[in-house]
Design a protein around this nucleic acid. Sequence first.
DNA 1: TTGTAGGCGTTATCAC
DNA 2: GTGATAACGCCTACAA
Lengths: 337, 337
Amino acid sequence: MATIEDVAKLAGLSRTTVSRVINDQPYVTEEKRQRISQAMKELGYVPNSSARRLRSQKTETIAVLLPRLTNPFFGNLIEAMEEKASEWGYQVIVCQTHDSKKKEMDYLQLLKTKQVDGVIMASLVNDWKKIEPYLGSGPIVFCNEYMDEPSIPMVHMDHKQAAYEAACHLLEQGCQNIAYVSGGPESHLSKMRKEGFTEALNDHGKSFLDEMSIEWAIDVSDGQKLFHLIKSDFPYVDGVFTGSDEVAAGLIYEAASSDWKIPDDLAVVGFDNQMISLLMVPSVTTIEQPVKDMAEKTVEVLIQQLLHPGALAPKKYVYPHQLLVRNSTKRKKVTIQ
Amino acid sequence: MATIEDVAKLAGLSRTTVSRVINDQPYVTEEKRQRISQAMKELGYVPNSSARRLRSQKTETIAVLLPRLTNPFFGNLIEAMEEKASEWGYQVIVCQTHDSKKKEMDYLQLLKTKQVDGVIMASLVNDWKKIEPYLGSGPIVFCNEYMDEPSIPMVHMDHKQAAYEAACHLLEQGCQNIAYVSGGPESHLSKMRKEGFTEALNDHGKSFLDEMSIEWAIDVSDGQKLFHLIKSDFPYVDGVFTGSDEVAAGLIYEAASSDWKIPDDLAVVGFDNQMISLLMVPSVTTIEQPVKDMAEKTVEVLIQQLLHPGALAPKKYVYPHQLLVRNSTKRKKVTIQ
DNA sequence: TTGTAGGCGTTATCAC
DNA sequence: GTGATAACGCCTACAA
């Protein structure tokens, strides 16, 4: 591989001058500039990125931590993030934590070892106490996940309110026994959802029942399992808040093979407004989030922090959501007086 | 940030010895090893990755080029790749080409600038002539995409055969006018599919009709558009090979709002066996590919090339596929004698 | 067993 | 305008 030195020799000039040309700096005669460009072309010279990184202490790379890519929500998220980052000339490293505390910490280490300039956390399973020290090595921005801690920027929607609305909707459709389904670990986000859900119950004179709370459902097959669990152990359940379109879809799919009617026997609410929620029969009532907007804002906020360190005060960016009422909860008005 | 020098000073030893400890090398007294570990802890020392890269000429990073992450096939692919790469201690950079020749070349540049040790191409829109020179900078492995050129390893299935079988299946179901639908540009892969499709037609005494060939359908909304196009312009079409479960789903979804019955009025075949193909009503006949196996093999092949340069002869790894016949093509046997 | 010193490829500082 | 030279932080012959 040709180095800057080779170019300099071939052009009969110094490394310094070559460097100036590479970086479009002034104070080089047009003639020499040409001569150097010519030499670079001849040698197929390309600046070595490792050397640049070492010199500049910058990597032009960011890490995006998320639970898993097969969840289409995160697929959409990182798609938009990569595109935005690429516009700014930044590379994106994918870091799937699979909700493992250890993997999350391992990937955060990329910041310390200077493999990345900054980190976006769309996964969050460790305590803030464990994460905070990494701020010394570079900026971190939360996306989707969030907490009360105000020391870093966060981009997300109001999951508590969203869950509240979804639960109210189920109650208004006449559901008496609503199961609460979430996936995985007690992140701040799912805590918020549960709070909103509980609050809705309370406002309607009901209370949250632990026995009707499931915390392991993340995909279609979990949704299928869930249906059978409900059918056998909780047949009185007539509404489900799933927190995931995939789980809702699995549930609905499996219900079709039994004698349960959706939404009349069981009303189902998903989350994220994935394609699948529209395509299912019946279509799935869900919460729409502005994924793309959030993804792009997150990248922008992070890059702004990189470009102007310490300039912006950490800030929360709360995006609006929308309850999309579809057939999985639209019950026939049986009780019209 | 503490450097190796700082650690050495604090421990009262030389950089060399510290380096030995960092890299678990022999010839260090246990006592000094302890002393150094202690110093590293005190200073919160972490080796600087840029410096290591420059020194070792390795990045422990690979780039994965693919069209877009919102296509769940590529989501699954990169999910498995990242996991496997992570096992080997490699980082993964996502590179979405959006089928742009320019972006594809831009991302290949990562190899030349030594930002990555190797590249996986699951996107391929440029000519081989343009890509080949990059081999000088590091190994490239194709995944899913392939071509006859034997100079690099390729991991894929037999798309020609798969399309052949799908088309035969449609013909056996009594389809007379089958539309051929593909997404995007003429990659080698889609060329192969079209060949298989055409061959099946020929074997059944039919021929490929350009007028019934669509090359712009990649997602659900394209599938929806497609349905209306067929309904208005090609009402005689009674079978569709889509090459994508998403397109198939969009088609089926839209057909439900019209008076067309699937599969009797229109039989539909998808591709990839995405979750959605199972969940649709009717469920979608599709081609199953061993995505995870292919993804993992690709990463392994690439990493083997990195670990033992020039050791393995480039090789094709062809994975088996399977036609999953489901309700979108299972016509009632009207013509039982 | 430990240390010295040179260099990986680039860029910034300072002379000329 | 141009060019020596010194870092950036690490690893590794080669000496001791």
